[in-house]
Nucleic acid binder design. Structure first.
Length: 267
DNA sequence: ATGACCTCCCGTGGAGGA
């Protein structure tokens, strides 16, 4: 089973690219970020025509997240993290699909740093860490996928020294990501490719894609049961080369079939 | 480097992104 995450940078402006990629890659589950559309402007008809059921948490102009399921309707289990009374941004949606809890997230950018936007990013990260702990305690298969806006290590940045004071690479943010992992999550792409330079984003400016001046900021975090089923994973980087494309490329993982149910009395 | 480039909006430039 293939699961993908894709920051589309505007779901309506990107509709042709999104549909083309959905038809080419045909993942079973898709997490989308940066819809940049209010709920009533989500292009559900085109998504449905491509063969996907969807739930979405939109917002006019900014943010917005969605979960798509091929041939079925995702069963929504949450929108927004707990304790978000002070946060108007649409950055989290969650569904039960194919027997797994799938959380789709768009973590704040946080620039400029320092400043209130950076403080907001750190607060949002803390809320995610607290909620992720709750998810693991459920002891069910969970995937947290999306745009985390953090490069976890120097392998994830084309030129680390240029980014040390940026909100995507500051030590506080990398520490928060490590604390999240230490709860028991597996960073899927990094675990499959421990030593490779992997990028999921290339800036529109400075000819970044052609120079391969990229960042790895879109991630899959897997609960232990899902990590045990991880077979493959990669970035559909060629999509970043298409016309009128997003500045992010789709990222995907492939899981083996669910392990067969244990016989009763097996412990 | 107040840069670039791209998205959105009721806009005809500004804000936000990373």
């Amino acid at each position: 089973m293939r699961i993908a995450t894709y920051n589309v940078n505007g779901v309506n402006g990107r509709l042709d690219v999104l549909i083309r990629w959905l038809e080419e890659a045909a993942p079973q589950i898709v997490c989308l970020q940066e819809l940049k559309a209010s709920d009533d402007r989500f292009p559900w008809r085109a998504v449905e025509a491509a063969g996907y059921g969807a739930i979405w948490h939109g917002q006019k102009s900014w943010n917005g997240v969605a979960i798509l399921a091929r041939g079925s309707d995702p069963l929504e289990s949450r929108r927004g993290l707990p304790d978000e009374s002070d946060d108007p941004a649409s950055r989290y949606i969650e569904a039960v699909v194919e027997g797994m809890v799938v959380g789709c997230l768009y973590l704040p950018n946080g620039n400029p740093c320092p400043g209130p936007k950076f403080d907001y990013k750190l607060r949002w990260f803390e809320r995610l860490i607290a909620y992720a702990e709750e998810l693991l305690e459920l002891d069910v298969p969970v995937i947290l996928a999306g745009d985390f806006n953090v490069m976890p290590s120097e392998l994830d940045v084309y030129k680390p020294e240029r980014w040390v004071d940026d909100a995507l690479f500051r030590v506080e943010v990398r520490d928060a990501y490590q604390r999240l992992l230490q709860q028991g999550w597996t960073d899927a792409l990094r675990s499959l490719h421990p030593q490779e330079r992997i990028y999921t984003f290339w800036d529109y400016m400075r000819n970044a894609y052609a120079r391969n001046a990229g960042l790895r900021i879109d991630h899959f975090l897997l609960s232990p049961g899902v990590a045990a089923r991880l077979k493959r994973g990669d970035v559909d980087s060629h999509v970043r080369g298409w016309d009128h494309t997003s500045d992010h490329a789709p990222v995907w993982i492939e899981l083996s079939d669910k392990p067969s149910r244990r016989r009763k009395g097996n412990g």
